[in-house]
Design a protein around this nucleic acid. Sequence first.
DNA 1: GCCGATCGTTCAGCATACTGAACATATGGC
DNA 2: GCCATATGTTCAGTATGCTGAACGATCGGC
Lengths: 278, 278
Amino acid sequence: MTDSVRIRDEIADSESLAPAVTRAGAILDALAESSGEAAGPSELARRLGLPKSSIANICNALAEIGLVRRIGTGFALGRKLAELGGAYLASVDQVQEFYEECRILRAGSEETVQLAILDGLEMTYLARHDGRQPVRLTSQIGRRLPATHTATGKAALASLDPADLDRRLDGMDALPTMTEKSIATVEGLRADLDVVRERGYAIDDEETVEGVVCFGVMIPGRRPGEGPYAASITLLKARATDERVPLLIADLHRLAERLTDPLRADQRPGRDGSVIRR
Amino acid sequence: MTDSVRIRDEIADSESLAPAVTRAGAILDALAESSGEAAGPSELARRLGLPKSSIANICNALAEIGLVRRIGTGFALGRKLAELGGAYLASVDQVQEFYEECRILRAGSEETVQLAILDGLEMTYLARHDGRQPVRLTSQIGRRLPATHTATGKAALASLDPADLDRRLDGMDALPTMTEKSIATVEGLRADLDVVRERGYAIDDEETVEGVVCFGVMIPGRRPGEGPYAASITLLKARATDERVPLLIADLHRLAERLTDPLRADQRPGRDGSVIRR
DNA sequence: GCCGATCGTTCAGCATACTGAACATATGGC
DNA sequence: GCCATATGTTCAGTATGCTGAACGATCGGC
């Protein structure tokens, strides 16, 4: 493991036994970055460092199954992605329960509540409850944000066992910042995670967007190896008053309790991991 | 054609120049159907009629790029689908504008409003505005419903030129019904589409769900070859009073007007199709 | 506790998907 | 209006991804 040999540099074409699929993934990523704009085979080949004709073959296959659509002579993301994305979200039990539970939160139902899952050092946002606040502070579903600066991310990271956390932070020195208040160093992050563990919830005080504060709690995964989830409440800093915040924190803890696997919560920990679902 | 030689029967592996990608699409579809439940290589191979080892190779490649996730020894849809699905929705201008416009509708903002796009004879639902009605009547984003029974679908179909409509209905004899009131024949559908064109909007009167009525209007696509969109308002039949419905219809027409491409709406039709976007 | 069935994984040989160059087409500049 | 550039598409040869059978692991049943 000390042997840090550089195998390849471009996309992870490396050792896949189905390189066309790996490359298709790279193409989808590239199209997602240039959001909305169509890209032709030549441009994609240039960006990904792959042969032009291979790209064309894969894009045509992707177009046939609907994952991309043709815009004139180029390609853009296709509508089947919405279908499959919806199917994925529907398959995550927490998402369904999240929507139900959010509506019956005392104070939290008025605010913007979000559900996300940890993936590496990023959070993928899976669900959003829109409160009655007119301002749309939140990011769209499917968006990814750094776990190191978000309330959801810090709540999730704080729940990892130390070895796992070290593995994810391995090789990181400085953290890319989003605002002036963003934690910029790994040491600062570790110190904040200690506070999160003791406090029981995470705070993002204008670390992602200026003027906006978030509170986050961890929600454990239900299957082995499934990264922890987290829920957060987002509000304008002016609304985060001393009397309102405690109510929101209580709602978050209630939400986390309800979204924790009932089977796992009901039975005392210590039994074997055999859990029958559905 | 009397020669009934069976070339291939299972999935359309036929003539793709990137068969691994085509098969990956079939795998994703299969996983979407068995929603939530994980499926192993053997089961997928059986369902799709493809070699087991090929499936395993493709699944591992899909897992590496995050389109599927491993559940124990099996596979299920992965979280990158949520990311790409969100990116697709973000790339559709109508979706963004839909959310903004829905909130300022006079009567419609109270109800459930949906945006969908026509694809063959099905509608893919792209966006949903949740009104203040407590009942969640609507389908999730990304879900597909028959265009022949939904208000969105009939509004979209009615806007097609006759040749296009004939092509889509070619080979259909009886329509699969969803409720007792569903239109069951192609002739019945054609007659209803005539009414839709004259009336200016489509009605789904308990054709998809009993006790629920929908009104739909067509929204033209903005790029050549892009299937028509449609918007609908859904409500319990008891709420569809004689004084409320006209207000909702007016809101739908207003919405359609605002979601029609501004560039195309501003200039008189008749100019060439060269439209500069962004 | 043994056995039969089924599963996921491995591996070598062959068919075939990938590649690079050439073609045809569309575009912008002087 | 012409040329220079860049783009999407085609095609034959070859490297390589796909396949079927064998392996080892796991589960359920008489």
